[in-house]
Every structure is written in C-alpha cells, then in structure tokens.
Computed example of a mutant assay.
Amino acid sequence: MPTPDPQRFARAWADAWNAHDVEAVLAHFHDDVVFTSPVAARVQPETGGVVHGKAALRAYWNAALPLIPDLHFEVLGVYAGESTLVLHYRNQGGGLVNEVLRFDNALVAEGHGTYLVEPD
C-alpha cells in the first residue's frame, strides 16, 4: 500500500503537535490503531505501553499533553518505506525520537514511539 506524501505528512504531523491539537494529530489515525510508547507506559501504566484504538489514544494524549506544556517537535528527517514512514525528530527536551508509522489506506494503522538510548 502506498504511503501519503512523506514531507507533507511530516509537516502536518509536526504542525498539529506543535499546536497541541490532539484532534488534528488523530485525524491521521485509523479508529482501530495500535500505538506503542514508553511514555504511554509511564503516563498510563495500565496500558503496558500499548494503546489500542483511537479513543484510547485520544485519552492517552490528552492525559500526557498537560504534563508537557512546552511540547515542541522539530522534524530532522523523514524516511519512507512500503506503507511505512519514520519521522525522526527532536523533542522539546532535546531528546531524539523516531515515530515509526505503518499505513493502511493513507491512515496510520500502527505506530511506535521509539527513543534514543544513550550508551552506558
């Protein structure tokens, strides 16, 4: 399956996050999306870091966003694969993150927030 235009998607995604507009971000996701993130595991421990469905993703992001009032993402690179985009970005704290997104009919069916692990 084809992916959406990588650069256009990355701009819209970053603009929505930087505006703290959860509904604009969610517009890119399937109703039955599966999303994993270590942040979800911290904010909503009962998820074990795995969020199922758009409604649960909305609840997670709406719970997390007030904890990060200065949230800001700077896209550093966009990588395209078959039905997959990887958005490499720097967050407000300077952390490096990759968002791995698998698409089905131009909507995100599966997403994974991955964070740089510094060497010991």
Rank of each mutant, 00 (worst) to 15 (best):
R8Y: 11
N105D: 13
V51W: 04
L101P: 05
V86R: 00
L67V: 08
P66S: 03
F29L: 07
P119N: 10
V100R: 01
T3V: 15
L65W: 07
S83N: 14
Q92K: 12
P2A: 14
L26Y: 07
A56R: 00
P66V: 11
H20R: 09
L116V: 13
S83I: 10
F73S: 08
V86W: 02
P2M: 13
R58A: 09
D21M: 11
M1Q: 11
T114E: 10
D15L: 04
D31A: 13
V86L: 02
V25L: 06
A16R: 01
L96R: 12
A41R: 01
P38F: 15
F9M: 03
A109Y: 04
V50K: 13
A27H: 05
F35C: 04
N98W: 04
V43C: 01
Q7C: 06
A80L: 07
R11S: 15
V39R: 03
D120N: 14
Y79G: 15
A27E: 08
F103L: 14
E23K: 12
L57F: 11
A19H: 08
V43Y: 00
E110I: 05
D21R: 10
A24H: 07
A55H: 04
D21K: 08
A16N: 03
G111W: 02
E23G: 09
P119Y: 10
T47Q: 00
T114L: 11
L107S: 15
N98Y: 06
I68K: 12
P119K: 14
L71F: 14
P38G: 04
G95T: 07
D104H: 13
R58Q: 06
L87P: 00
D32P: 05
D5C: 03
D104A: 15
V75T: 05
L101M: 06
P2L: 11
G81L: 05
E23W: 12
G111Q: 01
D15Q: 04
D32G: 12
A59R: 10
P2T: 14
P4S: 08
G93W: 10
G111A: 01
L116E: 15
S83D: 11
R90M: 05
P6W: 02
F73W: 07
G81D: 09
R102I: 11
L67M: 08
L96H: 12
T84Q: 09
A27N: 09
L65V: 07
A80R: 13
V97Q: 09
A41S: 04
L65D: 01
Y89N: 12
W61H: 13
A109M: 10
L87T: 02
V51A: 03
S37H: 04
G48P: 00
N105W: 11
V43P: 02
G48D: 02
E74T: 06
V97H: 05
N18R: 03
L96D: 13
V100D: 08
D31W: 08
D5T: 11
D70H: 11
E74W: 07
D15G: 00
P4G: 00
V97W: 06
V34C: 09
H20W: 06
